[in-house]
Computed example of a mutant assay.
Amino acid sequence: MSFKHAARSLLVVLVASTIGLVFAWFAGSGSVMLAGFPAVFTCALLAFGVNWLAYVPAALFRSDRFYDTTGAITYLTVIVAACAAAQDAHGQLDPAALAVAGMVAAWTIRLGSFLFTRIHAAGGTDVRFEKIKVNPPRFLVAWTLQACWVIFTASAALIIITAPEPRPLDAFFWAGATLWAVGFAFEVIADEQKRRFKADPANRSRFITSGLWAWSQHPNYFGEITLWTGILVIALPSLSGWGWLAVLSPLFVTLLLTKVSGINLLDAIAEKRWGDDPAWQAYRRTTAVLFPKPPAK
């Protein structure tokens, strides 16, 4: 790798980490303190620290085996840190903060274990990293962006947990919790349906069109966007000033899953596999891309 390309990758790392930390500083400016800084900002420092620490052995062994697992550990780390800050400030966690911490933990553990199982079933490697894991500066970009993913996505949850005033279980909480439950159910059911479909040898060269996948081409992504939107709804009464930056949480998830590493990447792979298949063309034409709608008759 040339010096120019290495420098460019390191510049991306610098810019991305700066954006993540600046975002956390302003979005969490009203949060309780943790280690002398606003708790949300301290959580952002932890997110980068966890990923950069995990990057070292990953780069040495040119392995992406624990990339997704590190993402899950990062979420759990920042949630635990936020809870510790709230506990220290208030003496106990209020019901809304405790519930939101549980929601994020449940989503993290479920998705993290699902991705861990999937990557090991595939031989411990991910096609996304085939080229970049042999290139340390570019590989560092991936780990840095994962920390940014955690910071932006979890920002609304962190603001709820570290709010200076306890939150009641109000209408915003129940509306958001309902959205979260719907989204979580969609993601879990869709992933399980696809796992069972792919586990059947008869489906080796086929694509799934049954269950929730008959309602949406990407029902798991719809679920993820919905559950983070639910957490933002819970956060709304806690937002003020720069805290309103937390509205970027579900918007960031939507952008990531539709334009960066989600739908567009999977669609390109699917088009390469089944692009000439009339059944695939019909499925793409008649099935909603993201937001579910009843299957075409």
Rank of each mutant, 00 (worst) to 15 (best):
G28W: 08
I79V: 15
A122C: 09
W274C: 03
S9I: 05
E224K: 00
Q146S: 15
G275M: 03
G102N: 04
P237T: 06
A163C: 06
Y67V: 12
K272R: 12
V22H: 03
W280V: 03
A99G: 10
F207T: 00
A6K: 04
R285S: 06
V233F: 12
T108I: 06
Y55M: 07
A268F: 04
I132A: 07
L140W: 11
R62P: 00
F48I: 00
V56E: 06
N51L: 15
V80S: 10
K4L: 15
A35Q: 01
T18W: 08
T117I: 11
T70I: 10
F139Y: 13
S238M: 14
C43M: 02
L251A: 11
R167K: 08
S216C: 01
I119S: 14
L257K: 00
P295N: 04
F3I: 12
F186V: 10
M1S: 12
R196W: 09
T254K: 01
W25N: 01
I234P: 15
A84E: 07
A44L: 00
V141F: 10
F186H: 10
A268M: 02
K297L: 14
W149K: 05
L212H: 11
L236T: 15
N264R: 07
A47T: 00
L45V: 08
D88F: 11
A24T: 09
G123R: 02
A16H: 12
D191S: 10
G124Q: 06
F41A: 05
T258H: 09
R167Q: 11
A157F: 14
S155W: 13
G230Y: 04
I263T: 09
G71T: 05
T286S: 10
A81D: 02
F66R: 06
F3Q: 12
I132F: 04
A81Q: 03
M103H: 04
F61Y: 15
A282Y: 07
W213S: 02
A235I: 02
F114I: 02
A279N: 07
V247K: 07
K293T: 03
H5Q: 11
H120N: 08
K194V: 09
V182S: 02
P295L: 06
A35H: 01
V127S: 12
N264W: 10
L255D: 13
T209K: 09
V40D: 09
